[in-house]
């Protein structure tokens, strides 16, 4: 079902946790709220789930206004950060709980529990207690419990935080596949930008109780609208430059003409580390400089360089690496670095 949040405000004493949030999650969409801790994302989730009543604004599920409806009447499935499985009930009892609350018959419950367990590939675990399961298995039980009653909306509150990296990655893909197959409208909360990029149809980046930018992962990554978003998603070089007469001059790097001339005055340019060019290719670029390699870090698939250009602040570069490639630049050596107009993005609201 479609989720429509409009003008939500929530204050706790002097602190404004949500400062006018508008958000729509389309039917079957996977939308991620991405933000640092304290950005208000958890409060937003609670307002949607029914654990907090907002001071202003509305929450609509489908064509129903649920702003003040108690959680138990919202038909929203939620996976908690620590799963919140009932420790004294077996896996099957945990899954049966929401169905019992809805007055489903015994036979139907048994059938649906078996189906749900099969769906998350935990067929043989019905009689186990939660603490007899691994973290990944508990996570899958929590997911099964959240979807077994055909919820109108699925909420995921940082459900992968407690798992190790490998398991997290495989579960992310599993949840994504399941969500697509069941066409579940999903709101996912995380502070992990990689996770957000991997899983989402769209991402809403939150900071200071507001949504800073809403867009597809590609849009958010390539065209961030604020410095905060540019910094929060991926690694970035933010370059302070000056626009004048249709040209942009970058201290230490020279001047260039951008496809769309920014308004005269100071501008912030975003240059992703992988877009920075090195060596002969850099010399031919409109903006280039000589730089010292401060640090070179081997990352397997790539090498990350920390560079000190002459007359400009430090920069990061990331170079793809094939096994046969020689190391691109030794620490302490001097190289030419540069970028072309199409490599940079003007951050609209510096």
């Amino acid at each position: 079902m479609r989720l429509d949040v409009q003008g939500i405000v929530k204050r706790f004493g002097a602190v404004t946790a949500l400062n006018g949030v508008d958000l729509a999650v389309e039917e079957g969409e996977f939308l991620t709220i991405l933000g640092p801790s304290g950005s208000g994302k958890t409060t937003l989730l609670k307002a949607v789930a029914g654990f907090e009543v907002p001071d202003a604004g509305t929450v609509r599920l489908g064509d129903r206004d649920v702003t003040t409806a108690p959680a138990r009447h919202r038909n929203v499935g939620m996976v908690f950060q620590n799963y919140a499985l009932f420790p004294h009930m077996t896996v099957a009892e945990n899954l049966a709980f929401p169905l019992e609350m809805r007055g489903t018959g015994k036979a139907a419950i048994a059938r649906r529990v078996a189906e749900a367990l099969a769906l998350v590939e935990l067929g043989g675990y019905a009689e186990r207690l939660p603490r007899q399961l691994s973290g990944g298995q508990q996570q899958r039980v929590a997911l099964a419990r959240a979807i077994i009653f055909d919820p109108s909306l699925l909420l995921l509150d940082e459900p992968f935080g407690a798992l190790d990296r490998k398991l997290r990655e495989s579960l992310q893909l599993e949840v994504r596949r399941l969500q697509r197959r069941l066409k579940l409208t999903t709101l996912f909360i995380t502070h992990d930008q990689e996770e957000a990029l991997v899983m989402s149809d769209r991402i809403a980046v939150m900071d200071q109780g507001r949504i800073q930018q809403l867009g597809t992962p590609g849009e958010i990554y390539d065209f961030p609208v604020t410095r905060f978003v540019a910094n929060f998603i991926g690694e970035s070089n933010l370059i302070e430059a000056t626009a004048q007469g249709g040209r942009v001059s970058v201290p230490g790097f020279g001047t260039m003409t951008l496809p769309e001339a920014p308004a005269p005055g100071p501008v912030t340019l975003l240059l992703r580390p992988e877009a920075l060019r090195l060596g002969a290719e850099a010399g031919a670029a409109a903006c280039h400089a000589t730089a010292t390699v401060l640090e070179s870090v081997f990352l397997g698939l790539s090498v990350k360089l920390r560079l000190q250009p002459e007359g400009a602040p430090e920069m990061l570069a990331r170079l793809p690496l094939r096994p046969s490639d020689p190391p691109p630049a030794a620490e302490g050596s001097t190289i030419t670095i540069g970028f072309r107009p199409e490599d940079v993005h003007v951050v609209p609201r510096g």
Partner: peptide, 15 residues
């Protein structure tokens, strides 16, 4: 008792 447990129960439809 983890305060998320009653909350989870409520979200699952329990009065």
């Amino acid at each position: 008792i983890d305060p998320d447990l009653p909350r989870a129960a409520e979200g699952l439809g329990a009065p």
